[in-house]
Nucleic acid binder design. Sequence first.
DNA 1: CAGCATACCGTACAATGTACGATACGGCAA
DNA 2: TTGCCGTATCGTACATTGTACGGTATGCTG
Lengths: 222, 222
Amino acid sequence: MTTSPRQSSPARSRPSRSPRVRISIALSRPWAKADHLQRKNLIVTAALEVLHRHGLQTVTIRRVAQRLGVGAMTLYTYFDSQNDLRHAMIERGFQMLYDGCNQASTLDTPQPWHGGAHAYLQFALKNPNLYRLMFDSPSTFSPAEHQLFVGGFQGLIDKVTARLSSRGLTGPQLKHQAARDAGRFWIALHGLASLAISNRITVLSAKTDDLLDDILAHVSPD
Amino acid sequence: MTTSPRQSSPARSRPSRSPRVRISIALSRPWAKADHLQRKNLIVTAALEVLHRHGLQTVTIRRVAQRLGVGAMTLYTYFDSQNDLRHAMIERGFQMLYDGCNQASTLDTPQPWHGGAHAYLQFALKNPNLYRLMFDSPSTFSPAEHQLFVGGFQGLIDKVTARLSSRGLTGPQLKHQAARDAGRFWIALHGLASLAISNRITVLSAKTDDLLDDILAHVSPD
DNA sequence: CAGCATACCGTACAATGTACGATACGGCAA
DNA sequence: TTGCCGTATCGTACATTGTACGGTATGCTG
């Protein structure tokens, strides 16, 4: 498994390739030491860096490969297509989003939704290209993405359920209202994040933070 | 020079004109009878058809031109670039969206926001690719788009203002609350539309219509 | 008729995704 | 050892894209 990048001569008749060291930004890269799965992750990381810095349309196979110091076709050893790589990027994005939200919403404060909502919005604002890729992609979910999405939403539902349960609701009514409250909350958060990313908020002559407070006041499950 | 065996001369005298009748979908050819502005609109219409039927990445210069029965480079007589054409498509989209909403929002019902909200959602659901192009484009607004966006939102603010005014609010407080209520309403509608388009709603184990009712109950400016 | 503006578009080029197949190497069977 | 196979790498080639360049056609104005 663990092999160093090979030297291969061109298919036709070129005798050899000159340099051992490839010209790339990846100077001290762990590529050579990584196994198959780790290399997949390295590719995703490199792709996310390009996405973050230069936008989706610049995330090309050749560019990501160059960043890793490998040939373009090497990526096809790990992903079937560019679309496959994009799905992997989306999965990573959901993991990042949920990690941030869960980490921020562990507290029992008088306003328990503030932390998670703030973390959600911050993720979107700090990773606008990734957030767009995650939520505005016309392609359907892969099974893994579906699992991640449902799982993350279920976490929110559980929190809402616990909250409503402590207020006396039980049975199917509890379940129904928890799902609805959680859905409405997420929808509003996503709407705010989506518009904020695309700079549509300033058009509304309002500040994003004020709107978040407003949403929390009107839409949060409490 | 005229008959160089090399194939590399970029500019060469052209032998003849292509046949008069072009093979295209444009049979009744409104193109020939149109003036400059009308042709611009024909191009936008053709591009929107391709967008609607086959998605954004298939809206290529060559494809739109073929649909119109003209050469690819002809489009550059009317638009500076593909991006320029996209902006024109976005402008048309906003006009369509606002037309639909204004037409549907007859104000004097017990629930005055239902009509407009429903029309908004229907536009997004019926034109998902266009809606995505309008709201998820990473590019900044052109002045014309900005004008359209602000104008449409101002219409909503005016309606909310009238409503709040009839309840006794006045002065800067009225202005402030109207803007905030309208902003929150739009954000929630956009969040619902955006998630519904990308099929994320079924994941929430809820129906889009139910969620719209829920949003109207919690977020509408009333 | 000459000159110019406008419209049309064939050709070429650089960048893209990716199919194909050559090259290299590690491990296993004989 | 020798031979073979599976995995990894990647050079090449091709179709498709946006669009720059510059040519041709047509109408208007003098």
